[in-house]
Simulated scan of single mutants.
Amino acid sequence: MYRDLTGGNRTHPKEGGPSFALGHRLFRAAWNVTWAVFGRWTPAPLHGWRRTLLKLFGASLEKTSRVYPGVRVWFPPNLSMGHHATLGPDVICYCMDRVLIGDHAVVSQRAHLCGGTHDPDHPDFPLIAKPIVIGSHAWIAAEAFVGPGVAVGEGAVLGARAVAVRNLESNVIYAGNPARPIRERKRV
């Protein structure tokens, strides 16, 4: 047994027990219903409307940030987006811990930002949440995966379908699974 991430009761997640307190789960349920009804399907140009919904549920978004249709945000209070930051269509933002997206950073369509994992060596298989930081001017390309605790350096590029499980250096282009450096990024 272990204590859940919100300080609630001790649970058995390996046996189907919750990892988060009831209040947290009810908040997420209300968010998911609101997003499904009022946000997820809305036309692409309605960035302001989707920003408003996210902010009502606790996200920290600059007024020039863009969230496209189909994006799935697990827990809005853990999402922070800078000026002109973008979450492209159908991005999965599994923000069990903080996800910080810097100014002018782009997370392209169907990319997956995953802030949680489990301890495979612990008998109770507890959930572990770690923050993700995407630096300014970074680009997470289509269908790429960024794992828990990863920091993507300023101006770094994670190529399409690449998998980042370790930090990415600034101004370097990465590709593959696991992501490997390809070359330095030329800044214009």
Rank of each mutant, 00 (worst) to 15 (best):
Glu169Gly: 02
Asp90Ala: 13
Leu56Ile: 10
Pro13Thr: 10
Ala44Arg: 14
Leu22Thr: 12
Ser65Asp: 04
Pro131Tyr: 11
Ile182Tyr: 07
Asn32His: 15
Arg28Lys: 15
Ile101Phe: 04
Leu61Met: 13
Gly58Val: 02
Pro120Asp: 07
Leu54Thr: 08
Ala141Tyr: 01
His137Val: 00
Leu79Asn: 03
Ala175His: 06
Ala179Lys: 04
Asn32Leu: 13
Leu79Met: 08
Arg187Thr: 15
Leu54Met: 08
His24Ile: 00
Leu113Asn: 02
Trp35His: 05
Arg28His: 11
Glu15Leu: 14
Tyr174His: 04
Ala138Pro: 01
Pro69Ser: 10
Lys55Tyr: 00
Ala138Glu: 02
Thr64Cys: 06
Arg51Lys: 12
Pro89Leu: 10
Ala156Glu: 05
Thr52Asp: 03
Ala29Met: 12
Pro77Glu: 11
Ala179Ser: 09
Trp74Ser: 09
His12Leu: 11
Phe125Leu: 15
Asp121Met: 09
Thr64Gly: 04
Arg180Asp: 05
Tyr174Leu: 04
Phe27Tyr: 15
Trp49Gly: 02
Asp121Ala: 10
Leu113His: 01
Gly70Ala: 08
Trp139Cys: 04
Arg98Ile: 09
Leu26Tyr: 10
Ala160Met: 15
Gly39Leu: 03
Asp121Glu: 14
Val150Gln: 06
Leu54Gly: 02
Ala179Arg: 01
Asn177Pro: 00
Ala105Ile: 07
Pro18Gly: 07
Arg66Lys: 13
Val133Glu: 11
Gly48Cys: 00
Leu26Arg: 12
Pro120Thr: 13
Gln109Cys: 05
Trp49Glu: 07
Leu168Lys: 01
Trp74Cys: 08
Ala105Met: 09
Gly115Glu: 07
Pro131Ser: 11
Gly39Glu: 04
Ile101Trp: 01
Thr52Trp: 15
Ser60Lys: 15
Leu26Asp: 08
Pro13Asp: 10
Leu53Thr: 08
Arg3Tyr: 10
Val67Pro: 01
Val73Cys: 05
Gly88Tyr: 03
Ala21Leu: 07
Tyr68Glu: 13
Ala175Gly: 01
His112Leu: 12
Asn9Thr: 10
Gly147Leu: 08
Leu46Met: 15
Leu5Val: 11
Cys93Trp: 02
Phe125Asn: 11
Leu53Lys: 05
Gly115Leu: 06
Leu22Trp: 12
Leu127Thr: 13
Pro45Thr: 10
Cys114Glu: 02
Ala164Glu: 02
Glu169His: 07
Gly48Ala: 14
Leu26Ser: 05
Asn32Ala: 15
Leu127His: 11
Ser65Val: 00
